[in-house]
């Protein structure tokens, strides 16, 4: 059974200190970059030891899910601090002030796939176009449809570059899709956006939902053009998925990234088996329900070991 992480990983205590010091001008940008690089390398080593099929770089220098794109894409400036869904964490709301476009900026700073990784393949994690649109303030596009379409095309250009750089799997994080209860019209727009994103990319793709009940939207998203759908089973009941013909892979979000309680192998095995038996998807892979960055790093490392153990146990 496959298994991998879903995005941002918590910073080490050393990187916490370095970033704090840098914010006060006590550490140089080069020293901070070296601290980031050490954390990325350590995370890659942890993942390869855990024998995950796809490695992520942990987004360790991303200040939030959208922040790199205020630099990488045109037409976006930073707004105020805003609560990140139902968490005690905050992001800066992107303000769409002009047409959004990827104009070829270097992606190396925010997507790192150059480290040795013992043959594991690289997964890039990006914001999904719907969540990006909903969580932004739009002052440039006359309709929501135009905004989500522009974001989809821009993200498509970004992942096309990332594919050339070596990424083989693209995961789009879409917490809003099960948190905001999109209308039927919006769901149609989201579907079209994913057709733009996925068409001709020639890589594996996933739409990862979290922070909400995917059962409420599964009717619609099951037909989207990604290969996989990630589901947060701390917010979604298995029963709400059983009536559907699941021809995709399910990312089984069964390791809770928002609680430090360590999952037992027995509980995970039962849950994964139940998803396999009751939902009968094309395949199941094991993931945390969302980014492990909500945990202190010491706990996140333990949860990565639990993920590895679950992969082996269920297989």
């Amino acid at each position: 059974m496959e298994g991998h992480l879903t995005g941002a990983f918590p910073r080490s205590e050393a990187l916490v200190e370095a970033s704090r010091a840098a914010a006060r001008g006590r550490v140089s940008p080069d020293e901070l970059e070296a601290a980031y690089a050490r954390d990325v390398e350590a995370l890659v080593n942890l993942q390869t030891q855990a024998k995950v099929e796809f490695v992520v770089d942990g987004q360790l220098n991303w200040k939030d899910l959208f922040r790199p794109f205020s630099e990488l894409l045109t037409g976006i400036r930073l707004g105020g601090l805003t609560r990140w869904f139902d968490n005690n964490t905050f992001y800066r709301k992107p303000i769409i002030v002009d047409k959004v476009r990827y104009a070829g900026a270097s992606l190396d700073t925010y997507f790192r796939c150059s480290l040795p990784h013992n043959g594991a393949r690289w997964k890039a994690v990006l914001p999904g176009p719907y969540t990006f649109a909903v969580m932004s303030q739009n002052t440039a596009y006359s309709s929501f449809g135009d905004l989500i379409d522009a974001l989809a095309h821009s993200l498509k250009d970004v992942i096309s570059e990332l594919k050339k750089a070596g990424f083989e799997y693209f995961q789009f994080n879409e917490p809003s899709i099960c948190f905001s209860e999109p209308s039927k019209n919006e769901l149609q727009l989201i579907k079209q956006a994913y057709e733009v994103l996925v068409k001709g990319i020639g890589a594996k793709t996933a739409l990862h939902t979290y922070f909400g009940d995917a059962g409420k939207v599964i009717d619609s998203i099951i037909d989207f053009s990604t290969d996989c759908i990630g589901i947060d089973f701390y917010a979604t009941s298995i029963a709400s998925l059983v009536e559907h013909d699941f021809t995709k892979e399910i990312g089984c979000g069964c390791i809770d990234a928002r609680n430090s309680l360590l999952e037992t192998p027995d509980v995970l095995r039962k849950l994964i088996r139940k998803v396999e038996d009751d939902v009968a998807p094309k395949a199941v892979y094991v993931t945390p329900n969302c980014d492990l960055e909500f945990l202190p790093q010491s706990i996140a490392v333990k949860k990565l070991h639990i993920l590895a153990e679950a992969k082996e146990t269920v297989a």
């Binding site: 910073r11 840098a22 905050f90 992001y91 945990l295």
Partner: peptide, 17 residues
Amino acid sequence: FYGHVRSFDDRYYRKAA
């Protein structure tokens, strides 16, 4: 207390279990 979690940007707080 296990360690720090990020609140936003480069701000963190100690979160207890």
